[in-house]
Design a protein around this nucleic acid. Structure first.
Length: 595
DNA sequence: GCTCAGTCAAGCAG
DNA sequence: CCTGCTTGACTGAG
């Protein structure tokens, strides 16, 4: 992305072994535990070679359960300890915690990159979690196909595969009350399966048998196998979910217990208030389409639910004080705390929406408003409780900054790329007085001082217009071992260390789906001054896992030249790009256990 | 590129 | 167990 010829000397006081404080992506590539993978198991296309698995259920050192009694005198089982890979279980088992970055745990994130199919055909193939029958290849594709067919026919839906009880035994971390780890786990599993379904759907092999909505189908796959958390409905905060958390699908919020309605905007439940039955609101999703907007980001004017137009007799009707509307009304009277989720249109992917948990609100007022059409609509004034960390407000501020970066604190330059990128890359410093990295040249791509000697002769594919997933005649797909590395929305599915994109020698058009890294910057990026670590790059846009962000561009230099410059000098921004993936001892261990 | 109509759905309460 | 209620995600036409 950038080159730095000059010494920005920030190295003296930095202990590089210290972990940089980063809020990471959920996951770069699809990651999911073996059990979940096995659901779509067997013929794993090598382009989606599975993650080195979680500990198999029977290998999990079951944590000592503490039995407590709850207020009603019933025993409750509380297993707070998530199964962890220990030295005794020599499996590289742990999936990196998604939103708790630990750079020192690389070795625990081993990937079986050899696409070994047999290793992962065990597991959830129908009868049992642990001892699942070995089925192979096309047969498993067939299973998947049939499952998805069955899904199409609602009435004949199968009971959950595997059974949820055995699943919970294997994954105590997912039992009822979640924590950060369970939430991350569920979200990561959701996204992996969703992307996997996309890949299956888009490959020719299965295209006939598939319906749409990979998000819903991924969610169903998880739900029917008990892979969800916080299943008990509750008011107030939800364990493991923090104010400001971002969600890319409504279903994600269902799976982690933030908002139980897959479509409905108001989630509520019945309660006993003294001796009489009552109802209370738990959470609302504001999708910003009912004129919910307010100038003050801590206030939400929420509209009640209910059709305003009766399609049968074509009459405009008033909303009724029932269901969600009634629950909001009752909660207003009791001053209940209600969770609020704010939805906005994704600025990068215009057809999609993004949701942010904005914390707890109280309903301060409610009234009926007459719409233009003549129907009455319930309105609720919801006010954010003080003392919560800023979430939606920051998001809105980011929108403002994107529209006009000069309005922002520490603004230096609106577009560092000087118009080279299709969207501006701004330069900011709200830390000190430095006005930018010196001797700075903006590069779009790699700069090779020496001509690049290709080992193999380069040739391109002959695809007409665009390469199509599943088309094995395409030489680029062949080079990717038969798999299309991206989904139709340009999300990465391949887990291979190397991806072959179409290039200048290919016949296909520039909008071919196998040219993701050639489409330029899509997210709003800014170069900013860090506190003590020189200049960095960050974005103001929520980025979906698997999204291509930008090319790591700059000048290519020799190893010798890199060493000549010496420690603590220009190596601030030098990256070693020549590393070739090799099976390490640990990977072999991993393979031998499963293979 | 943008909008809009059309299509198909999950999970809850009752 | 079944029905009614809710709206998102995505596609393709204009």
């Amino acid at each position: 992305m950038m080159e730095n010829n000059n010494t920005v000397n920030t190295s003296e006081s930095i202990d590089k072994s210290k972990i940089v404080e980063v809020k990471p992506l959920r996951s770069l590539a699809p990651v999911l535990p073996n059990n979940v993978q096995s659901f779509f198991s067997g013929q794993y296309p090598s382009g989606f070679s599975p993650f080195c698995s979680f500990v198999k259920p029977q290998q999990i050192p079951v944590p000592k359960e503490t039995v407590q009694t709850d207020v009603d005198g019933n025993a409750t089982v509380d297993s707070p300890v998530a199964p962890k890979a220990t030295r005794e279980t020599p499996v590289a088992a742990k999936v990196t915690p998604i939103r708790s970055y630990k750079s020192s745990h690389d070795e625990e994130v081993n990937v079986n990159r050899d696409g070994d199919v047999d290793s992962f055909s065990e597991g959830l193939n129908g009868d049992d979690w642990g001892e699942g029958s070995r089925k192979r290849g096309t047969q498993n594709i067939q299973n998947c196909k049939e499952f998805l067919k069955r899904k199409k026919n609602k009435k004949t839906r199968e009971p959950p595969i595997g059974g949820s009880s055995s699943y919970f035994a294997a994954f105590p971390l997912l039992r009822e009350d979640g924590d950060r780890e369970s939430v991350n786990y569920v979200l990561m599993a959701f996204d992996s399966i969703r992307r996997r379904i996309c890949q299956l759907e888009e490959s020719k092999e299965l295209s006939n048998a598939l319906a749409k909505r990979p998000d819903l189908r991924a969610s169903h796959a998880l739900t029917s196998n008990g892979i969800k958390t916080n299943t008990r409905r509750r008011a107030g905060g939800v364990p493991g979910i923090e104010v400001g958390d971002i969600f890319f699908f409504r279903m994600e919020m269902c799976l982690v217990g933030l908002h139980a309605q897959s479509m409905g905007g108001i989630d509520y439940m019945n309660i006993k208030d003294g001796s009489k039955d009552d109802t209370m609101a738990l959470s609302v999703v504001s999708s910003g389409v009912y004129g919910d907007e307010s100038k003050d980001n801590d206030i939400l004017y929420y509209s009640g639910s209910g059709e305003n137009f009766n399609k049968k007799d074509k009459h405009v009707t008033d909303q009724k004080l029932q269901r969600g509307n009634l629950a909001l009304d009752r909660s207003a009277q009791r001053h209940d705390e209600v969770r609020v989720i704010r939805g906005l249109r994704d600025t990068v992917n215009r057809s999609a929406k993004i949701y942010m948990y904005d914390g707890l609100y109280k309903i301060e007022d409610s009234w009926i408003e007459m719409e233009k059409s003549g129907g009455g609509v319930f309105k609720y004034k919801m006010v954010r409780l003080p003392g919560q960390k800023s979430a939606f407000a920051s998001w809105m501020l980011a929108q403002k900054w994107k529209a006009d970066s000069s309005s922002r604190n520490g603004f230096i330059l609106a577009d560092l790329s000087n118009g080279i990128e299709s969207i501006p890359v701004s330069l900011v410093n709200d830390v000190d007085d430095e006005k930018g990295p010196a001797f700075f040249t903006y590069f779009m791509s790699l700069k090779n001082p020496k001509p690049f000697g290709l080992v193999q002769r380069s040739f391109g594919c002959n695809c007409n217009k665009a390469c199509i997933p599943g088309d094995l005649n395409c030489s680029c797909i062949q080079r990717n071992e038969g798999d299309f590395p991206y989904t139709a929305n340009s999300i990465l599915v391949s887990r291979k260390p190397l991806i072959h994109e179409c290039g200048p020698m290919c016949q296909c058009f520039p909008n071919c789906k196998n040219r993701v890294s050639q489409t330029g910057l899509k997210q709003y990026m800014e170069v900013f001054k860090t506190k003590g670590r020189g200049w960095g790059l960050r974005t103001l846009d929520p980025i979906r896992a698997g999204t291509f962000i930008c090319e790591y561009a700059g000048e290519v230099i020799d190893r010798e030249k890199a060493y000549q410059n010496g420690e603590g000098d220009t190596d601030e921004y030098v990256f070693d790009t020549s590393r070739i993936y090799l099976l390490t001892e640990r990977h072999r261990t991993c393979k031998s256990i499963h293979g």
